[in-house]
Structure formats: C-alpha cells, structure tokens
C-alpha cells in the first residue's frame, strides 16, 4: 500500500506540473490582459504596470519565474484585487464554498441513495415512478433556473428563507437545495440502476435462500455491491461542489471561490487564475484518489495495483 501511495503521489505531482504548464500557456494564448478596460490605459502607465508584474519579459522567463515561485509556495499577488495575496483570497473564499458544498454533498448522497434504493426495491411500482419523475425534473431543471425559482417562491413570496447571504443557518437552505437537486436526481438514478442489477444477481438469491435476514442482505450485499457507481460519481462531484458553483454563488450572493474564479478569468487576473487552477487540481486529484481507495474498501475484488494478471 505504501508503495502504491508513493507512486500515486509522484504521478500526481507530475500531473500538477503538466496542469500548471498547460494552463499557463493557454491563459497567455487567449486575447486580453489584466489591464484592459473600456477606457484605455495610457501607454506609459501600461508599460510600467507590465514591468512591475514582470509581464514585459519573454514568455518562457515568465513561466520559469512563476514555477520558481510556486516551488517556494508563493502564489503571488492578485493583479486585480490589489495588494491581496492569492493564497489569502483562496483561503477566505474557499472556506465559504467548502462549508456550503459539504452540506450539499452529504444531503444529496443520503437523499439520492435513499430514493434510488426505494425505487429499486419497488421496481415498476408507484414509488419507483414517482422517484424517477422527480429525478427527471431534478435533472431537466438546471440549477440557474431552480435557484431563481426557489429564491422567488420560498425567499421572496413566502419569506421562509433569506433571499441572499449565508449569515444565518436558514440562509443555507435555498443554496443547498439548488446545489443538491441535480446530484440527488443523478445519484438516485445511478443507485436505482445499479441496485436493480444487484438485486437480480445470483448471490442475492443465494443469500435469500440461505435464510439471511433482509436488512442484512440489503446492507451486506445490495448496497455494498450497488454503491460503486455512486462512489465514482460522488468523488468528482464533491470536488466540483466544494470548489464553488458560480451560478448558485452569484444568485444567492455568496462570497465563494467559484465566483472569484470566473471573475479572475474574465479579468485576466493571471496570478489568480493560476493559483485557483492549481488549488482546484489538487482537490480534484485528491478526490479521485480517495475514490479509488473507497473502491477497494467497498469491493475487495477490485485491485488497484494489479494489471492483467487478475
């Protein structure tokens, strides 16, 4: 296992390096720079700004300098949010997105698996159809529509929840609903589909025949075997959700990292783009790594290190 983890770690470092490189040159390839606005910056001031941020140097020099800073753990200073450390902004805004995102992940996993399981157990019965209709609505209504509808109906018209902000615990309700509706639907469908497969598998019949109690069958066999696609999905989804949904953050006025990231791209805030991309990359790879480990825990037949011999 130790060897497995070490080699994974090396691969991850290499991937991050490639990610940084690719993003850096991609970012420089697209038109625009941090100093553009409707009112053109006078040439002499622009030249000084470029010199101060090192943007007047050849591209390769800029790249090498940036890598050097990264290795020393320095993400630099934002070019748009003046005098603010990129790492500081990430820290501040990620905390907000993380809290909101984790709640949404937990809610959507529990509700999604429960609904999916119900649907599978009552296959082709009323409950099944209800769950599937809900799932279709959950998927067919995109988060930006759902968020506005929820905000208008539950926030403005009924006044049950705050319209914006996360200042009170109640403030979390609408954003969490908007964030988890899609994943709930997705997870419910994945669960239903894979549980159905498991329920029809021979070992379940065997277990039944052996006289195993139904809850035990459900837990030991059905859920364990049927949860894998859910695990595959929840891993990257967690990475996605905790790194902030621009749409939901924008509509509910939440100061999360998703909003900052999109703003930094439209502002061409180079240091900010790189910092958040790197940060996002680490989270994604971590989430995928954990997913793989969970695979093994859930289904011991899966061997991660083995190649063809299995």
């Amino acid at each position: 296992m130790a060897r497995y983890v070490t080699s994974k770690l090396l691969y991850t470092l290499l991937s991050l390096f490639i990610l940084i490189t690719a993003t850096f040159f991609l970012m420089k390839a697209i038109p625009g720079d941090p100093f553009m606005s409707e009112k053109e910056v006078p040439a002499s001031i622009r030249a000084r700004l470029e010199a101060q941020y090192g943007l007047d140097k050849p591209l390769m020099t800029q790249y090498v300098n940036y890598l050097g800073n990264i290795v020393q753990g320095d993400l630099g200073i934002s070019m748009k949010k003046l005098n603010q450390e990129v790492s500081h902004i990430i820290g501040q805004t990620f905390g907000v997105s993380l809290r909101l995102g984790l709640i949404a992940v937990v809610v959507s996993t529990i509700v999604g698996v429960a609904l999916g399981l119900l649907a599978a157990l009552y296959h082709r019965k009323f409950i099944d159809s209800m769950v599937m209709v809900l799932a279709v609505i959950g998927i067919a209504v995109p988060s930006f529509v759902l968020a506005s509808l929820l905000q208008y109906a539950l926030g403005l018209k009924l006044g049950w929840f705050p319209i914006t902000g996360l200042k009170t615990p109640l403030g979390y309700v609408l954003p969490v609903m908007a964030l988890s509706a899609g994943p709930i639907a997705y997870i419910a469908r994945l669960t239903r589909s894979s549980m159905l497969e498991v329920l029809h598998a021979d070992y379940i019949k065997t277990a039944k025949a052996k006289g195993l109690k139904w809850p035990a069958i459900l837990w030991k066999h059905v859920i364990r075997n049927g949860i894998l696609p859910v695990v595959t999905y929840v891993g990257p989804m967690t990475a996605n959700v905790i790194t902030g949904s621009v749409v939901v953050e924008r509509i509910f006025g939440i100061g999360g990292i998703g909003k900052v990231f999109v703003e930094s791209i439209s502002n061409r805030d180079y240091t900010m783009i790189m910092g958040i991309t790197l940060f996002y990359g680490i989270i994604l790879m971590l989430a995928r790594f954990i997913t793989d480990i969970v695979y093994v825990l859930v289904d011991p037949r899966i061997k991660l290190t083995s190649g063809k011999e299995g």
Binding site: S15, I18, T23, M27, I30, I265, I273
Partner: peptide
C-alpha cells in the same frame, strides 16, 4: 491522470 489534467484545466479558458 491525463483525464484529470484535462478536467482540471479551466474550461472557460
């Protein structure tokens, strides 16, 4: 890893 890198590159860019 390749798919992860591709996934992590900012889509907007």
């Amino acid at each position: 890893k390749f798919s992860e890198i591709l996934y992590a590159i900012p889509y907007l860019l």
